[in-house]
Design a protein around this nucleic acid. Structure first.
Length: 597
RNA sequence: GCCCCCGUAGCUCAGAGGAUAGAGCAGCGGUUUCCUAAACCGCGUGCCGCAGGUUCGAGUCCUGCCGGGGGCGCCA
């Protein structure tokens, strides 16, 4: 089944094509009708016809009778379309009878690599990793739901010159002590201490440089120490991912070290293709169209003047590997916008080398920075970068206290009472279900990130994201929980909302019921649109619109107290489907939808 | 200096070349014998940064400027 807009578009395309092949009817949601088609105006211009007259002819030749109850040409040549209740109700019924809620899988699923998160070994995860992780994870879920074969790739920074320093520091601290420190998650302290030794101590610097050489040359003991750093960090990342509730697992990690053996081949092959040039001792490719501050061609440095490989070499090896070995047809890089030029250059060079062939897409899914209330890059009060775990813990804590302040008694966990081994509670504090706090707090952080246009910077604001009003996770979660509560009540009253077999169409009496049906039918397009634009904010906007439309329905159309049994059944169907769409939509964003709040 | 992104209500943000530019917050006022009031309803706002251009039609596309952010050779 297709969404309502797509159905109208398809029918009108047939009518338009008799006047001009491939003319686009431009069907859009409308304030003046259910939908409007704007395509007659530009077509009339092209054909040199009177637009209103042409619109009337098109409407006359279009077969819309089974979809629309009313079609009207308006103004200079807009075509206003009102769906028939029969079509609306039938579409809702078939959506309700479908496990995928009417969202078809793609006709041409693509093997898609999603490169996201990318923390660094032995370094703290900070808010910069937050956006990549959240956005990338939502895209993975949406694409997988649409049937794409999604390969999650966590391009962890686990290689390079800093590892000489880190390993030497590891030895200074002692392996076991260092492992403890790393697993506790105080990675900044570890890294800073290593850095401090490196900056202050000439002997340490010399050791570090020797250690890098040992690491590169495959010295077994050095490799063992390196693996120790990687393993402890991986465990730490995994804890953060569990806290965040994202799909990433240790199996998704393909660190920079993985590409190390391929780097010489990248350089050699670029050389053989005649793309390499020496510049100030470095070996570079100069893709056309990129210039530096003097207006001279800008190099992509693949091999540094000291013989080491630059990160560009790794990124090129990576693109190559993803296409040749993994068979990717699409690669999404969920990486901050500052890296736009670097990625564009890598893509350009990969195309020049033939590694990124026609028909394979490499996309920079760029995102802006997280800003504090002062509109500057988000920092802690002390001015340091904000640790991601601290931020997540604060989110859960803030959600917990918001719930304790306002929640109804039944969602508060039973208090264990003193002396039962639980932590003593502050005076007046009420115990709150930990899972609910987590669902709300983490959901709020994720939704705040996903709901705004990812290319823009966004202002991080606890009060706004945790508000139960406006375009927030708690609002959507509440809308969902409230619907579920209707069904708990229905069950308690012995009402069965879902008889076996396919659902009978709803009745759609009254504007609120009808508006809800119309909103529900927009789900498929919201999902496909999100996938196509790699913009989770589209799905957020849809879900918020659905939730507000449902709320209008909830206020105006009594469900359990509907005047007739038939109307009650109809409204239960609409309510059930609304809750299911909200839950599935939130799930595609990686956000939990608690049954009760 | 060059390149990229962004400028929409007091604030945070939506806006698919289409009709009268929309939400939420904040402010004021209302709604609970009623399925979750963590909700809902009502009330006001706009030189869509500025100036040109393309178009039947521009917040949306193009050019220039102004303002903010970022990038611009061996860090990733």
């Amino acid at each position: 089944m297709a969404g309502a807009r797509v159905a109208l578009q398809t029918r009108l395309e047939a009518a338009f094509s008799t006047f001009e092949p491939d003319a686009d009817p431009l069907v859009r949601p409308s304030a003046h009708a259910d939908y409007q088609a704007n395509g007659a105006l530009p077509l009339a211009k092209r054909l040199g016809r009177d637009p209103r007259e042409l619109a009337c002819e098109i409407v006359g030749s279009a077969s819309l009778d089974d979809l629309c109850e009313r079609v009207e040409v308006s103004g200079p040549g807009f075509v206003n379309l009102w769906l028939s209740d029969a079509f609306l109700a039938g579409s809702v019924a078939s959506m309700a009878g479908d496990e995928r809620l009417g969202v078809a899988t793609r006709a041409d699923p693509a093997r898609t690599v999603v490169d996201y998160s990318a923390p660094n070994v032995a370094k703290e995860m900070h808010v910069g990793h937050l956006r990549s992780t959240i956005i990338g994870d939502a895209l993975c879920r949406v694409l997988a739901f649409l049937g794409d074969e999604v390969l999650r790739e966590n391009h962890v920074g686990d290689w390079g010159t800093p590892f000489g320093m880190l390993i030497e520091h590891l030895l200074d601290v002692g392996e076991h002590e260092a492992a403890d420190e790393l697993s506790v998650g105080d990675l900044d302290r570890f890294y800073r201490a290593a850095r401090a030794s490196f900056d202050a101590d000439e002997a340490f610097r010399a050791r570090s440089r020797r250690r890098v050489v040992l690491l590169q040359s495959g010295d077994e003991e050095t490799r063992r120490l390196w693996r120790l750093l990687v393993a402890e960090s991986t465990r730490y990342f995994d804890e953060v991912y569990a806290k965040l509730g994202v799909l990433l697992t240790p199996d998704d990690i393909v660190g920079e070290s993985f590409y190390n053996p391929m780097l010489q081949g990248v350089v050699d092959d670029l050389d053989a293709l005649g793309l390499l040039r020496d510049s100030e001792g470095a070996r570079c490719v100069f893709p056309p169209g990129f210039t530096n501050r003097e207006g001279e061609p800008l190099p992509l440095i693949v091999q540094k003047s000291d013989g080491g490989f630059g990160y560009a070499a790794t990124d090129l090896a990576c693109i190559r590997d993803r296409i040749e070995r993994l068979g990717a047809r699409r690669i999404l890089y969920v990486v901050g916008s500052p890296q736009a030029q670097h990625l564009e250059m890598c893509f350009a060079v990969a195309r020049m080398a033939g590694w990124l062939p026609e028909g394979v897409e490499a996309v920079h899914v760029a995102f802006g920075s997280v800003l504090g209330a002062d509109h500057k890059m988000l920092r802690s009060r002390a001015g340091a970068t904000v640790k991601l775990v601290d931020l997540l813990d604060e989110a859960v804590e803030r959600a917990r206290s918001a719930i304790a302040e306002r929640a109804r008694p039944e969602v508060l966990a039973p208090t264990g009472g003193p002396g039962l081994g639980g932590a003593p509670q502050a005076a007046g504090a009420r115990a709150v279900d930990a899972h609910l706090s987590r669902a709300l707090g983490i959901g709020a952080v994720k939704y705040a990130d996903l709901s705004s246009d990812r290319t823009r910077d966004y202002v991080f604001d606890w009060d706004r994201m945790l508000s139960f009003d406006g375009n927030t996770a708690p609002y959507l979660q509440y809308a969902h929980a409230r619907i579920r509560s209707v069904f708990r009540r229905a069950a308690a009253d012995g009402l069965q909302d879902r008889p076996g077999g396919p659902a009978a169409p709803p009745l759609l009496e009254g504007p609120a019921d009808r508006a809800l049906a119309l909103a529900l039918l927009g789900f498929e397009e919201a999902v496909t649109d999100t996938a196509e634009s790699c913009a989770p904010s589209r799905l957020c906007a849809y879900l918020y619109d659905l939730a507000t439309t449902f709320t209008g329905f909830y206020e105006k159309s009594p469900i359990l107290r509907a005047p007739s049994a038939e109307l009650r059944r109809s409204r239960l169907l609409l309510a059930r489907l609304s809750a299911d769409v909200l839950a599935l939509g939130l799930d595609l964003l990686g956000i939990e939808a608690p049954e009760e709040m």
